[in-house]
Structure formats: structure tokens, C-alpha cells
Design a protein around this nucleic acid. Structure first.
Lengths: 202, 202
DNA sequence: CCAAATATTGACCAAATGGTCAATATTTAT
DNA sequence: ATAAATATTGACCATTTGGTCAATATTTGG
């Protein structure tokens, strides 16, 4: 039934190396600024070898972007309309902070694609993302109408969460330059807890 | 005394066109992803003509970055230790929002340089920026000790202001994809006013 | 072990890129 | 009007870039 051959040991290994290396390079230099040579060198392969596994530079980039988008919306999807509102929102903030701490390169890949004008994910933005944000905005608005949280603009609340959490990944270089050797995340988590608790408490 | 020749009418015009075009291209694609041909075309000049005015791609980029950094810290410098704390901080937020609205490309140029690891402004980050943030953090801490504002982490407060204000410039494509045709800034300004007023009120 | 399948890579290619340069056009200032 | 200074750009260059390809090496599975 399935005509697709399973991936060999070497394919698994090398595709993984390439995607790992590519994530480094694309997240730093964006699509146009990255080169196949950079990625190949970082992956420990020759360029033709790399191109044995992926048909083109674009194919690598698209694979990374699609993987990223598959998971990037999950934290917001988990916001439960039946849960306690402040807990649910704070849970979302925590999930996003965990992602910024654990997947900074993915965050920067996304930031880079957005800075480029989002040429490859425009449909995702106006489609799935918009729908999800619309949906969760209704939930947040309803929570306010039930007196469970303060009156906030749901859209700008969600943008705030993105802005504040992703900043620690995207502007990591700047944050660490200012803070010196100190890990930013513990203080950031406390600070964001404070911001959103005060903001949302009715 | 001064050996420097004044710039001619044509030099002023063409340097301006080049810098304007370069800001467009560098803010979208970063240094590596931008090309002299793109900039020249956007400026309405030939590439050798462009290079008559600037010695290299790097020289154009550095000029833009230096101009940017000259003004980027001004809003924070204006924070007056003798003023009313919440007014002063809200003033800073407003100045930053005005910048995001009026100079989105500059914000994106900065974001792009940071994503690249800030190779050309590392000294600015660990030098002037750090000093200024340290200085204003002391002011904020003192305001709290005098009971004028709530207890907040001054560093993360400043990062929050950066994150929330710059987001509207840097992720403009995403914000507008979600909001549709609606101008994000009025709602954003109200929302940020709410966030910081609640956060800071003792 | 061995043949088939997969993986590797040096050599190569056309196009793109950051420039350089000299001939020519335009502007300036007297 | 005119000579000097400035501005413009086609042609060119060396290097880089995203690939392509065939010879060879390695792995796989019977």
C-alpha cells in the first residue's frame, strides 16, 4: 500500500545533521543570507552530499519552517476555555517562555522569516494563525464578561505574550549584553508573572 | 581650518537616495542577504554610481547602523529621575511606540543586526547601552524604595518596554495578518498604557 | 561473499555578487 | 563660454553561489 521507502540509517543521520546545521545558519542570516556551503560545513558534509538529501536550499528551509509551524501554535491551542482564566493564560505564558529558553533558534528562524515579509508563510498567518487567535480572543472576551478577568483587548494581550516571551530568544544577544553572565530566564519568568497577574486580576 | 569639502547638491541627493533604499533592503534581508544591485535599483542608480558615493556595501550598512544607534537610546536617556515615576516610564513607552510607528524599518534593521549576533555593535551593547540601562535601573529601584512605584525588576521592566513596543514594528506583518486592515497602534497604545499603569501603581 | 542499492565528492557549470576602471556626460564656478 | 571638477556607467574582473554529474566508495540484504 505505502510506496514510500523507509529512511535508511544514514539518511536519518544525515538529514538530521543537515536540518540541525541549517537551523543554525538560517536563524542567524535568514534565507537569502545563508549559503549551502555554510550549512554543509556546519553539518560536516560536502555540498553535493548535502544536495543528495535535499533538492535545494529552499527545500531545506521549507522543511524547517513547516516543522516549526507545526509546533508553534500548540501552546496557544492548549488554552482551555473551561479552565481557570488566569491559570490558563499564565500557563500559556509559561509554555511560551519554555519555548524561548529551549528553542531559541526556532524563534529566531520565525523572526527572520517575518522580517523578510513572511513570503513563505503568509497563508499560514492569515489562515490558521488568524483563526486560532480569533477563537482564543472570543474565549478571553467571554472570561471578562463573566467577571473572571479584567477587561483587556484579547488581541493585544496575545501579541503581548508573543512579544514578551519571544524577545528573550530573539534579542538574546542584547539581553545578555546588558545582564552580563546572568541567566535572564528566572528573572524574566518572575517579571512576566507579575505583569500578567496584575493585568488580568479583576 | 576645516579641510572637508561641503557636499554638493547631487551628493546630498544621491547619498540620501542610497541610504533610503539601503534601509529598505537591509532591514528586510539583513547584511548578508542584501545586495548592492538591489539597493542600486531601489535608489534609481547604477551600481558603479552607487559605489562612487560609498566605498562598499559595508560602508553603507555601517552608516545606517551608526545613525540608528545615535538616536535609538535617546528615548531612554530622557527618563527624568526628578520627574513623576509613572509619568516618566509611560512617557518612555510612548516615545518608543512613536518610534515603532514612525520608524519601523530602523527597528527592523536593528532586529536584523541582533539576530545576526550583533557582530558590528557588540561594543555598543556592552558599553553605552549597558551603562544607560544600569543607570536608569538605579533610578527605577530608587523610585520603588521611595514608595513611588511598585517593586519591579528594573532590567526586565526595560526589556518589557523594548519587547512590547518594538514588536509592533518588527512583527508588523504578523500583527496585520491577524488584525486585517485595522491599524494596530491605537489599540496597542491603550493596551500598553493598561499594562504599565497596573504594573507600576504601588 | 557479492551484486544491487545507496552514499560520497571532485570537477564542473552558469549565474550572481562585490567590486574596479576608464571613457564619457554633466555640473560648477569664473 | 569654458575649463576644471564632479558624476555616470558599460565593460570587465575575481570570487562566490546554487546547483549538476559521473566516477568511486560504502552499505545493505540475500
Amino acid at each position: 500500500m505505502s510506496d514510500i521507502k523507509p529512511r535508511t540509517r544514514i539518511q536519518e543521520r544525515n538529514r538530521g545533521s543537515i536540518l540541525e546545521a541549517a537551523l543554525d545558519v538560517f536563524s542567524q542570516y535568514g534565507f537569502r543570507g545563508a549559503t549551502l556551503d555554510m550549512i554543509a560545513e556546519s553539518a560536516g558534509l560536502s555540498k553535493p552530499n548535502l544536495l543528495y538529501y535535499f533538492t535545494s536550499k529552499e527545500a531545506i528551509y521549507i522543511e524547517l519552517l513547516e516543522t516549526l509551524l507545526d509546533t508553534w501554535l500548540d501552546p496557544l491551542r492548549e488554552l482551555d476555555p473551561e479552565g481557570k482564566p488566569i491559570d490558563e493564560i499564565m500557563g500559556y505564558v509559561r509554555r511560551k517562555m519554555d519555548m524561548s529558553r529551549d528553542f531559541p533558534r526556532e524563534s529566531r528562524l520565525f523572526a527572520n522569516e517575518i522580517l523578510q515579509g513572511a513570503p513563505r508563510i503568509q497563508q499560514d498567518l492569515t489562515g490558521d494563525l488568524r483563526k486560532l487567535v480569533d477563537e482564543k480572543s472570543k474565549v478571553i472576551r467571554k472570561w471578562h464578561e463573566e467577571g473572571k478577568i479584567a477587561d483587556v483587548d484579547p488581541y493585544h494581550l496575545i501579541f503581548s505574550i508573543w512579544a514578551l516571551t519571544q524577545h528573550y530568544a530573539d534579542f538574546d544577544v542584547q539581553v545578555r549584553a546588558v545582564l552580563g553572565d546572568k541567566d535572564p530566564f528566572p528573572g524574566a519568568n518572575r517579571h512576566l508573572e507579575q505583569i500578567f497577574t496584575k493585568l488580568l486580576t479583576p
